[in-house]
Amino acid sequence: MRSGDFKTSYREDIAILQTTFVKVCIGIFIVALVGAVLIADNYFIYIVNLCAIATIGALGLNIITGLAGQISIGHAGFLAIGAYASALLLKNGVPFLISIALAGFITTISGFIVGIPSLRLKGLYLAITTFAFGFVVEHLANIWVSLTNGANGLMVLPASILGFTFDSDRSFFFLVFPITILAVLYTRNLVRSKVGRAWIAIRDRDIAAQTMGISLSWYKLSAFAVSSFYAGIAGALYGHYMQFIGPTHFELYLSVQYLAMIIIGGLGSVLGTIFGAVFMTILPELLKYIPDLFRQSYPVIVERFADINLILYGMLIMLFVIIEPKGLYGIWNNVKTYWRMWPYTH
């Protein structure tokens, strides 16, 4: 009898879903989630939808930052470009499926514009450039009034496919959920492929990777392009879901939120990204209850609540990097290992 999980072929070793147990778990999870969405109230579905959109965006950031090891601090800029592109295309009569795909490609091209000068150099240049890029996009969204309607924001048409309009929370779930599953599977697939291994090699030791024949500039650029594409799709979905976008939705704050997602979730891990996206989406919703507690005694806490969020996010990022760099995924793994070995942990 087999007394453990042994791989007897290469195909088994690289399988996306490793064991029957995992397959069953994920099946149950998907069925339970769809079932819950069918019966739950709109607020629950709203949170689930936001988690799904955040997962797509965070997967993109995790590809460039977690897998390829290049820091990007301007993710909000790419989300904004995707959101505005898709919104404007749909408004001008382009069908939804084409507009969202085009939004992805436009974002990818803007990724090239930022990536080509900064990624061919070693070091922090991508971090510096993307940091500035995030500001520039936010600024452009404010001043390019003829295109973006400036600070007043833009009304966005809801997504529709073949005459069916996804304008309620519940119907939108059935649009965003398949896309999220696709994004997750595609990322898992990338990680186990040649491209994904090349990215990880560059992250771990670029000189060694180069010696093995990996073209550093090409693979770094491709990681950034894929990352921008994900961001564009996530931004577009966000716009069509909220049906309103403005420059304030895409501030530096959002980039930091996404960075927090992948750091708290676990850099370079797909499951970790989902953990992080869900955690960082639910956390602000939970925090909304705090001002109610202090409304009477400390009105200042209510007034400056956004700043408390910032303090908390900053603390979380620093604490996770310093104390648990593997993030929630690392904690999850430790717990799993502990119980698998229990009671013979050592």
Binding site: A260, D307, L310, Y313, G314, M318
Partner: peptide, 16 residues
Amino acid sequence: MVTVGLSVFLKGIIGF
């Protein structure tokens, strides 16, 4: 990453 976290943290402290 710690400096990025620090920047948000300080920004929050200043605003608060």
